[in-house]
């Protein structure tokens, strides 16, 4: 069975499972919107200030929302034993791990990208900045799923795993946050966001190449 077929089959299974538990997808989305709306309440309604903060706030909220749903990536399979069966399939683990991460991104990353413009408008971002925001999220959220998968795999089955994942993964998210929020800031201040977006793209390629191997090693360690 070629590798692409395995990934497609796994994607179908993951999306079917996500559809059966639509609640989980929505909770991530609601969390994203709520966190982003908290900042104006905390900082005050001054439009000029909010416009400056807009990109950063949306990015931080997206980062926290993506991290919230990391636990689901392997934990439910580990609990009911299907993860062991996946490890014992003939296909190389890197293949189905990439499938799993892609499925996690589709379920928790893409909804954030779709909702982000609405929040951007709420913060008074202009048309061009909104476009850069969406594009930076498009490049950034897969990296959040990729790096997050390492944290999820390492903390499999640990009590208090949720908090631990955030401690492990947040420092590694910082470059993505800097370049993502920086892109929006660059677009708004007229400096142009090409540099940030290309660096973000670079990190995406690097993460796509390296993290599945790290996740495979982490799973082998955690399943023993």
């Amino acid at each position: 069975m070629s590798t692409s077929q395995t990934v497609i089959v796994l994607l179908r299974r993951e999306l079917l499972l996500a559809m059966r538990r639509r609640g989980d997808v929505l909770t991530v989305l609601f969390f994203f919107v709520i966190v982003a709306s908290l900042f104006p309440l905390g900082v005050g309604p001054d439009p000029k200030l909010l416009r400056l903060m807009g990109g950063g706030v949306v990015w931080v909220s997206a980062l926290l929302a993506a991290m919230l749903s990391l636990g689901r990536m392997f934990a439910s399979d580990h609990a009911d034993g299907t993860l062991e069966q996946l490890v014992l399939t003939p296909t190389p683990p890197v293949v189905w791990i990439t499938g799993k991460i892609l499925a996690h991104w589709l379920v928790s990353g893409v909804p954030l990208i779709l909702v982000a413009p609405v929040l951007g408008v709420q913060f008074g971002l202009s048309g061009e900045a909104l476009g850069v925001l969406v594009f930076s999220l498009l490049l950034g959220t897969p990296v959040l799923s990729l790096i997050g998968a390492i944290g999820a795999a390492l903390t499999l089955g640990l009590r208090g795993g949720g908090v631990l994942v955030s401690l492990l993964v947040l420092p590694l998210y910082i470059p993505v946050l800097i370049f993502g929020a920086g892109a929006v800031d660059g677009a708004m201040s007229g400096l142009g966001a090409e540099a940030h977006l290309s660096l973000l793209g670079g990190i995406l390629i690097l993460a796509f190449m390296l993290t599945p191997w790290a996740v495979s090693a982490a799973l082998r360690i955690s399943i023993e």
């Binding site: 299974r13 079917l16 499972l17 059966r20 538990r21 439910s76 399979d77 609990a79 009911d80 034993g81 299907t82 062991e84 069966q85 014992l88």
Partner: peptide, 13 residues
């Protein structure tokens, strides 16, 4: 084929 303690069945499917 491995048959472990847990039946490896997804409850939602």
């Amino acid at each position: 084929a491995y048959f472990g303690h847990s039946p490896a069945v997804k409850e939602d499917l």
